[in-house]
Amino acid sequence: MIRAGRLADTLIGLVPIALILLAWQAVHSAGLAPPALLPSPAAVFTRLAQQLGSPAYLEHAAATLYRLFAGFGLALAVGVALGVAATGSRAVGAVTGPIVRVLAPVPKIALYPAFILTLGFDDASKIAAVFVDAVFPILIATRQGTAVVEPKLAWSARAAGVSPARCLVTVVLPAALPSVLTGARIGLVISCIVVFLAEMITSTDGLGHLLVRAARNFQTVDMFVPLITISLLGLTLNAAFNALRARLLRGFPEES
């Protein structure tokens, strides 16, 4: 029954996507929009398939992925470390708390020009942009998750002679893992988005740059391709992340 329900749900979910594609095709076939403004879906997906097999395109994708993972990796390391430290030490909590409250609602993409000025036009400024945007959800989720860990879990470890610092790493952090991973997933999607935007604003390579280059040359088909690529990339990363999450959290009670 549940299986059948799932299948039905998946089919229902495909309807709007199919409708959009159909409408797109219809507008194109009816000649309502010139191909220069709206190319046919067939043209776009043929081009996408072609590009995904082209080494030059994949090199651009690789540049994007490198920046994405460098920035996200840094954000993960710093966000988790600071979040745990803020729970473990009253002093760290007192300093990071208000700073996070001030910086979290600031539109951090606006810092990108500052990174260009201080770190240059290359990878470093884009990695920094990804980092500052991804670090906050991870830090906040880690802080909140570790703060609400059942104290008796930590007591059980402390009674076994484990030092407070060790307890923080071996008990409090793993116990907060569901929350940490929620933050990390938000951070990952943000990383996807920011790296693309940074490449659109200034870059000489990467998927975002390809979109801007196509826009400058009025190659409409080539504008769609990087956008679909980043969406596919996001879906893939999300699926991979969910698989990893299921594995890491296999001992935890299921959540809805």
Binding site: G13, V189, M223, L227, S231, G234, L235
Partner: peptide
Amino acid sequence: AFFNPLLMVIYPVPKAALMPI
């Protein structure tokens, strides 16, 4: 079920990147 997959497809796309189109 109708909207979820569509939202998942749109989610990782930077909305501002749609500007050129």
